[in-house]
Nucleic acid binder design. Structure first.
Lengths: 206, 206
DNA sequence: ATCAAGTCTGTAACTTGTTCTACATTAGCG
DNA sequence: CGCTAATGTAGAACAAGTTACAGACTTGAT
């Protein structure tokens, strides 16, 4: 009588044993490490397996594709970044300024590891339907970071729309930067431009 | 003495003979055809070569990678679309409305061949630096379409920024739709939201 | 402690993008 | 016309993602 509501299948994912958790961690670490070196192409499944002391088949059991692996790597890094960003909240006067400031801070972090950024962002936008849940998770996390920066408890639907558009711009601007089609300065402008949308959407000052 | 300024290397690309032009066309056609069936994965270089009656090596001479091929396919389709869109200019009162209307029209066209859209957009965002010139060309063409829709001869720098952000949103929104993470309705909202940026940037009524 | 079920490992095979090679064809030119 | 360089062809070979499989190791329940 202890089945709590196993609606679809897994309770998100079977709880991992300690060793399994350690393996998972080693894999993600190896992935980030290789990505930092040479970007997307340098993350080769055989190498990841070797670096993390795991058989290739096991790697695929943990992450069913290279894209899954890199998206998971991004989740991991994003959480880390969210933690870092939280520590020093942005100081702008308007919500738009604060969001822009936060995104620029994140952008500078990415610039420190451009290859890693390349691997993660390319994987994210290349992901097909089979990775939707994971990509969605990344998206939610990003939304959280932006809402945090806005500093508003209950955003209006309009503001949420603005946040969606900001995320779109953020991802796409990153891509143009990574592929060398836009400068850092240009990305900054794009971010600042789109952030104006936030102030457009009448902030419910109460 | 007739060297006109062959600065780097090619005068863009050596002029193609008739047969070469025909080959190129066959290849692009086969590419679009295969893409329409099964999207990115269905465009297999061997199949494209066979369908277009060209040796694999030749295919690679014309398009140095699958990504190049698909981006070229997109260029081709975009030109077609621009022609179509030109015929019936959008009817909205404001520039923002007209741009949104135009993009939604393009979106509906993509919906008719979702697999083709998948192949083209995935290639576009996955492209690395080696494809920058071609991707840039696509970007310029898109900008043109949007400026056309705005119906303004000389846009302000601010408006150009808005256009950049609109393009970012357009690409990213397409991706979320293609990967099943956003509905058609949601894409519509995102487009409409970002288009408001145009009206923000004081239109120089003269 | 023992057994069954589930995990891992090592390794080979398969797929598809990409490169290479040896030979045939074509195009432009004297 | 006849030559030469460029282009095209067929097919093998290679690289990296992915899958398959046989045998060892863990784990959890009894």
């Amino acid at each position: 009588m202890d089945k709590v509501a196993a609606s679809t299948a897994r309770p998100v994912t079977a709880p991992l044993t300690e060793r399994q958790e350690a393996r998972r961690r080693r894999i993600l670490h190896a992935s980030a490490q290789l990505a930092s070196r040479g970007g997307f192409d340098a993350v080769q499944m055989r190498e990841v397996a070797e670096s993390s002391q795991v058989a290739l088949g096991t790697l695929y059991r943990y992450f069913p594709s290279k894209i899954h692996l890199l998206v998971a790597t991004m989740q991991d890094q994003l959480e880390r970044m969210h933690g870092t960003l939280r520590k020093k909240p942005p100081e702008g006067d308007t919500a738009a300024e604060r969001v822009a400031e936060t995104l620029m801070r994140a952008f500078r972090a990415l610039q420190r590891e451009p290859h890693l950024a390349d691997a993660m962002v390319r994987a994210l936008t290349f992901a097909d339907r089979s990775v939707s849940p994971e990509v969605d998770q990344v998206s939610r996390q990003t939304t959280l970071i932006i809402l945090d920066a806005m500093g508003q408890e209950n955003p209006t639907p309009e503001q949420l729309s603005a946040v969606r558009v900001i995320e779109h711009t953020w991802h796409s601007a990153l891509i143009t930067w990574l592929s060398g089609r836009a400068s850092i300065a240009q990305v900054k402008i794009d971010i600042e431009t789109v952030c104006r949308l936030i102030d457009l959407t009448a902030p419910p000052q109460e």
